[in-house]
């Protein structure tokens, strides 16, 4: 990041940097953050459409929070896989991970198929399996239908 860009988003003392977000997906992540109550009080810094050597253009989000909830990370790995998460402690990067798409999605989504039993039975747990990486597709364990991630994005169980 160039010095000018650094000026646009302030450094954070403690928290998390979500980096390498494909341009345009930052808004999806903001919506996701809004859906997780534990993060409602966190201070956010958002940068959209920066120049990136790897992606061409990218978004970037900084979250001043002690923890990122496990369920948020699972949702994030589904909605925008490949994001780099850097944990910041005292202005320095303490840990860095890249979120991979999950092989198994356990009760994080509802099924888009209106005929699927999981949409009709009380207290049922859903499960989806990753069946293809490019383009990413998941199979419902119950009705066995395959869904592209675009069909599942608005089916997150928050």
């Amino acid at each position: 990041m160039s010095p000018e860009q650094i000026l646009l988003i302030p450094k954070i003392e403690n928290g998390f940097v979500l980096d390498h977000i494909p341009a345009g997906s930052g808004v999806k992540i903001l919506n996701l953050i809004r859906g997780h109550q534990e993060l409602n009080d966190a201070v956010l810094s958002v940068g959209l459409n920066y120049t990136s050597r790897r992606l061409g253009r990218k978004d970037l989000i900084k979250i001043q929070s002690r923890e990122l909830p496990q369920r948020f990370l699972q949702h994030l790995s589904l909605v925008v896989p490949g994001v780099t998460i850097k944990r910041v402690e005292k202005f320095a990067i303490a840990q860095k991970i890249v979120l991979e798409p999950p092989e198994l999605v356990d009760n994080l989504l509802s099924c888009p198929n209106p005929g699927c039993i999981t949409n009709h039975e009380r207290c049922v747990t859903t499960c989806f399996h990753l069946v293809r990486r490019e383009p990413m597709k998941f199979r419902c364990n119950h009705c066995e239908r395959w869904f592209a991630m675009t069909e599942l994005e608005n089916r997150l169980k928050l």
């Binding site: 699927c116 039993i117 009709h120 119950h142 066995e144 239908r145």
Partner: peptide, 10 residues
């Protein structure tokens, strides 16, 4: 036998 898909799995 059930009209809903996935009923037998459940």
């Amino acid at each position: 036998r059930h009209p809903r898909e996935g009923a037998a799995r459940l």
